[in-house]
Amino acid sequence: MKLHSFGYLFGEGVRSIFRHKLMSFASIGVLTACLVLIGASVLLTVNINALVGGAEQENEIIAFLDDFEKEESEAKTAEIRALLEKIDNVDRIDYVSKEQALQEEKDRLGEDAALLDGFEENNPYPAHFVLTVRDLTTLSATLEEISSIPHIYRVNSAESVTNALISLRSTVQWISTAVFIALVLVSLVIISNTVRLTVFSRRREINIMKMVGATNSFIRTPFMVEGTMLGVFSGFLAFALLGGLYKWLMGSFDGMNFTIGSFDGMVPFADLALPLLLGFLLAGMLAGMLGSVSSIQKHMKV
């Protein structure tokens, strides 16, 4: 295709958006609505994952240690720490000495801390390691490994809570994937119908082009340009709408002082903005461009 032809066809694509205002408006409306719905489902999934992930982070394992003689305590503890560090799935390792354990208990009791007076000499609270794991799905195996380390006499972990969290996360992932696929399919049907309607209303124009000897690429290019521009515009619009809605919702949650585990509110929009914008622009462009090309194909066979 010659350069001046491309310039003309590009301009034709842009002019066509304004020439067929009503259809352009309809296409933008449909595409934006679909993108907002899909984007909302993605944002919801991201937030539920963050919520579950936050709760997972809070899920600690406590490995209680035998009492050691004072002089050997430090060396033995270091030995055990080294063995714990060798376990791949163990993430964070914090040591709590007997004295710290007693102090923590006193802190917990608050006003009643006096009950523990005198225990310093004969401290019943064991030294322990507080651990977190990277992958909760292999928790049982990790617990077994920890238990097998010498001088660890007991391991505490809320395994049932963990299992509930894992199953919640996988359920959320299944549902959100299903909703995402359903929304994408519905959107494709709606978008292709809208584009088909647009192209149908201009089949006469296409027919004239064919009759005066225009090549298929000459006919297709303005439609592709138009579809792509409408898609990009819809992408920006959907981003602005969803961003506004998200920030408004975040504002509402802030007011509630909402905290679950380490999850203290919705994922900040700044963290999601770039992938969301790029995703919208790409999806909008592809839907607009491919929608136009596939719908126009039928009218090309003259």
Binding site: H4, R19, M209, V212, F218
Partner: peptide, 28 residues
């Protein structure tokens, strides 16, 4: 090709309707 129903593009003026044929073949 000339048709009974003219088949002009209603959104284009006379000049552009005629120029349309030339543009379709990549004329400068």
């Amino acid at each position: 090709i000339v048709f009974q129903d003219f088949r002009l593009i209603p959104s284009l003026n006379v000049y552009d309707n005629v120029a349309f044929s030339l543009r379709a073949v990549g004329a400068s």
